[in-house]
Design a protein around this nucleic acid. Structure first.
Ligand SMILES: [Mn+2]
Ligand SMILES: [Mn+2]
Ligand SMILES: [Zn+2]
Ligand SMILES: [Zn+2]
Lengths: 152, 152
DNA sequence: CAGTATACGACAATGATTTTCATGTGCGGT
DNA sequence: ACCGCACATGAAAATCATTGTCGTATACTG
């Protein structure tokens, strides 16, 4: 009748590039570093577009997110597996991130939501620790593996 | 011998005031609103001091923290019960927050940490939803109970 | 191909939190 | 009680990831 039914998701070169760059990364990346990676790679894309695209992907459930535990709560993104969201155990030192099995927590969340009677209950679960390579020896502390973002 | 052993926590009037104001609040409060409450109450205290004190309390494990889910990740604080930390189900609309039973999750975290072999594993678990009073009716949506921070 | 709703990007604005740094004060030692 | 100094305080400036603005470009429908 009136408004023409238009698609709500335009496939544009920038968005394709952002998504591709995201998949090319190991583990979690921030919007900023993803933008840097793109520019370094010769892809002309604005920082705003990277932020906007990541937000869209987040809303569409195509990425998992973890937030830096310190002050500004910086956001890090990772492509989400097709079969549902994951939760991660992240090394505070080197950024190594591992998806963990979370059936138990998912059930717990559902039970709590049902018992208390809240609607549209969403959940955030983040584990942080130190991996073997980063364990602080009293004397012989070795250099960290790498900066951020390995994944298994 | 050399360095004099000094206490690592000075009891000062401002810190006492901040802690008291925190206990006087229902539910979670931000550093900013806690500062406003203090000043309104006639207590002369700087915003920096409120932030610093809350950080200290956090590090000492005397408060529980939840972070706003949107961009800036604003932090909200609540006095922690003596018998250990809690996790909360918070209403996105009115801020009503309820401590939930989380034995199951605590055990899950311990198991994951042990299985994967990370050390000093810490965890963040936050539940957000909509309480009964805030449920969005298709037609008759009623005004929200109150702004932020009730607790049960 | 035209029309328009949407995407883009350079740049400014936001806003919670941190840092600075000059000054005040708790507290251990005497 | 008095000193001395490490730590606490606060007003103001800095930080900085993220979002808003708005003029221009472009994807998509017809
Ligand atoms: Mn989950
Ligand atoms: Mn817990
Ligand atoms: Zn590590
Ligand atoms: Zn509510």
């Amino acid at each position: 009748m009136y408004g023409t039914a238009r698609s709500e998701w335009r496939t544009t070169p920038r968005r394709a590039a952002v998504l591709e760059a995201l998949h090319a990364c190991d583990g979690f990346v921030s919007a900023q570093s993803l933008h840097t990676a793109l520019v370094t790679d010769g892809v002309a894309v604005g920082l705003s577009t990277v932020y906007r695209t990541l937000r869209l992907l987040e809303a569409a459930g195509h990425v998992d997110v973890v937030r830096d535990s310190d002050g500004d709560g910086e956001r890090f993104y990772r492509p989400r597996p097709d079969d549902g969201h994951r939760h991660y155990l992240v090394c505070r030192e080197c950024g190594l991130s591992l998806a963990v099995e979370s059936e138990e927590v998912e059930r717990w969340v559902a039970r709590i939501a049902r018992d208390i009677g809240f609607h549209s209950v969403d959940h955030t679960v983040e584990l942080t620790g130190m991996c073997d390579g980063c364990r602080p020896g009293p004397v012989d502390r070795r250099p960290h593996p790498a900066g951020r973002a390995r994944v298994v």
